[in-house]
């Protein structure tokens, strides 16, 4: 039972979840039509999928190590592997299934590889597929989100002394509102760190900070009152 550490970890986890959701390239329904760049699903859904994959690995790792950093990194890498495979396969599907070239719609030149984007874009669309800078952004998003989820799981498991099942569902319950608030902040589609919408990040961070802080206090209360029980 270490109240300060619990609150710190939960707040950090919430902030990272919010940041991760902003970094993920999300195209929503338009991406499924090749009308927007990014992954063809909603922010909350892909964030949850990545974080859950990370959480699974982190939970295995937590059974044989008690280092905070290693557990959190396990979760982060798990989520990153998930995002990487998804984005690569989405590209293969766009290319061979629909004949669409990956291209970013928000920038004319790829900020990382300096490849031109505009000539490859279909007119009246907002880009399609997962080009390189978007891919890197997605990797970072998966890493950050998975790290946040695993961090909360570890704090609830070891600092608040919850059982594995309780810690998992508790981490999920705090992770979800943060990811959803981020999704409300994004409103639809985002390409990653180079997207103009990314500048809205501070608003979501403030909200996440407040919500995670309150949730962290709640967890501390729950943990404090039940300490010594068979958690």
């Amino acid at each position: 039972m270490e109240p300060i550490l619990i609150i710190l970890c939960v707040v950090a986890g919430g902030l990272l979840a919010s940041l991760g959701a902003h970094l993920l390239p999300v195209g929503g329904a338009p991406a499924a039509m090749g009308t927007a760049t990014g992954i063809a699903t909603g922010t909350v859904q892909i964030m949850l999928g990545a974080a859950m994959t990370g959480l699974f690995t982190a939970a295995s790792a937590a059974t044989f190590t008690d280092s905070l950093l290693l557990v959190a990194l396990s979760g982060a890498i798990g989520a990153t592997v998930m995002m990487c495979v998804v984005m690569l396969m989405a590209n293969i599907l766009y290319t061979f299934g629909c004949g669409i070239v990956p291209v970013s719609g928000r920038v004319d030149v790829d900020p990382l590889t300096k490849e031109p984007q505009a000539p490859y874009k279909t007119p009246q669309t907002d880009g399609h597929g997962v080009p390189n800078c978007v891919y890197v952004s997605g990797m970072l998003g998966g890493f950050v989100g998975g790290f946040g989820g695993a961090l909360m799981y570890f704090a609830l498991l070891n600092y608040a002394d919850f059982s594995a099942g309780t810690a998992a569902i508790g981490a999920l319950a705090i992770f979800v509102p943060n990811a959803i608030i981020a999704a409300y902040n994004i409103r639809g589609t985002i390409e990653g760190f180079h997207d103009p919408k990314f500048k809205r990040l501070p608003f979501a961070m403030v909200t996440s900070l407040v919500i995670s802080l309150l949730c962290g206090i709640m967890v501390v209360i729950a943990s404090y009152l039940t300490v010594g029980g068979t958690m």
């Binding site: 999920l172 319950a173 979800v176 509102p177 709640m218 729950a222």
Partner: peptide, 15 residues
């Protein structure tokens, strides 16, 4: 969102 809030609230309520 509501369910996420609900689980946290329920944990505290139960404690």
């Amino acid at each position: 969102l509501a369910t996420g809030f609900g689980v946290v609230g329920a944990l505290v309520g139960l404690a």
